[in-house]
Amino acid sequence: MKKFSVLMLLMSFCVSFSQSKNEKEERIPASEFPEIAQGYFNIISHEVKYLKYYKETDGDKKSFEVKFKYKKEHYSAEFDTLGKLEDIEIVIKKRHIPKDVYSAISKYFDENYRKVVVVKVQKQYVNTTDKPDRQFIRKVLEKPFNKHTHFEIIAEIKTKYIHELREFTFDRHGVFEKSRKVTTSSYEHALY
């Protein structure tokens, strides 16, 4: 029985290790950002605060991210290397998650972990419509409290065997979709 327990622990460690967020983020000038995506923000650059451009690598994946503050909300928009929008995220407080949704998220945490400390919460918007990226971005900026597609939560979790920082993705109803370990090298910029 002990051999089986050790084997299960090792397998869960391998799965956890293979699904880790090991992002490296580097601030870049706007001129190095994909031109098409940069154009989306040139139009509103006078309306936003702290418009900053970044290049990210996460293993083999490369992407670009723009971070800014607009109407007192903190946004980030991520693009692939060709300038196609991947997602838009808005930092929110835990209390801004609807009660029924947070209840479903809490139930997941209670069933799977001994202790959970929420560090950061974001609403995530993925363009699943046929709208062009520019139009979709504008819609999110104009009505940030409209329907979003996901919640992304960074939390410190504890089980009997582990204590680590993880990034969780839940759908807009609070149904768990995926999680991955956040490494210490990506921890600092993950908190913006």
Rank of each mutant, 00 (worst) to 15 (best):
K21Q: 07
V15D: 10
E164F: 03
I92T: 08
D58P: 14
H148T: 07
K178Q: 11
Y102A: 04
L85Q: 06
H46N: 15
K93I: 07
K120N: 04
F170D: 13
K93M: 07
V66K: 02
E164W: 00
T149K: 04
K160F: 06
T169E: 09
A77F: 03
F170Y: 12
P132D: 06
N112M: 02
T81E: 10
Y40K: 09
R172A: 13
N146F: 04
G174L: 06
V91G: 01
Y192A: 09
R138G: 08
S5T: 13
S18Y: 09
L10S: 14
K107W: 03
Y187L: 10
R180G: 00
N42F: 14
H189A: 07
I36Q: 14
R180M: 01
F13E: 02
Y125D: 01
K61V: 14
C14Y: 03
E65W: 04
K62S: 14
K143M: 00
A37H: 11
Y187Q: 10
N146T: 04
Y70A: 12
V117E: 01
K62C: 13
F13C: 07
S45G: 07
G174W: 02
A155N: 05
Y75I: 09
E32R: 11
R95H: 00
E32V: 10
K120T: 03
K120I: 04
E142L: 08
E89M: 07
I157T: 05
I105H: 05
V116R: 01
K52H: 12
D133G: 12
K84Q: 11
S179C: 02
S106K: 13
F41M: 04
S76E: 04
F136M: 11
Q38D: 08
V140P: 06
V121M: 00
I153W: 02
S18H: 08
G59M: 07
D110N: 14
G39H: 14
N42H: 11
H150M: 12
G59Y: 04
T149V: 04
K3R: 12
A104G: 13
L141P: 06
I28Q: 08
T81M: 11
C14K: 10
V140D: 10
Y54N: 07
T129P: 06
K69R: 08
D100M: 14
F4A: 13
T183P: 02
R95M: 00
Y70E: 10
E35F: 06
F151K: 07
A30R: 00
V119S: 00
G59P: 04
R138E: 15
S103H: 15
E111T: 12
G39D: 09
K99R: 00
K62T: 15
S18Q: 12
V6R: 08
D171N: 09
G59E: 00
S31Y: 08
H74M: 13
N112Q: 01
V15E: 05
L191N: 07
V117I: 01
E23G: 06
T169R: 09
I43H: 12
D58C: 15
K158E: 11
H74N: 14
R27K: 15
Y113R: 01
V116I: 05
M11F: 07
E47W: 10
E73A: 14
K147A: 11
D87K: 05
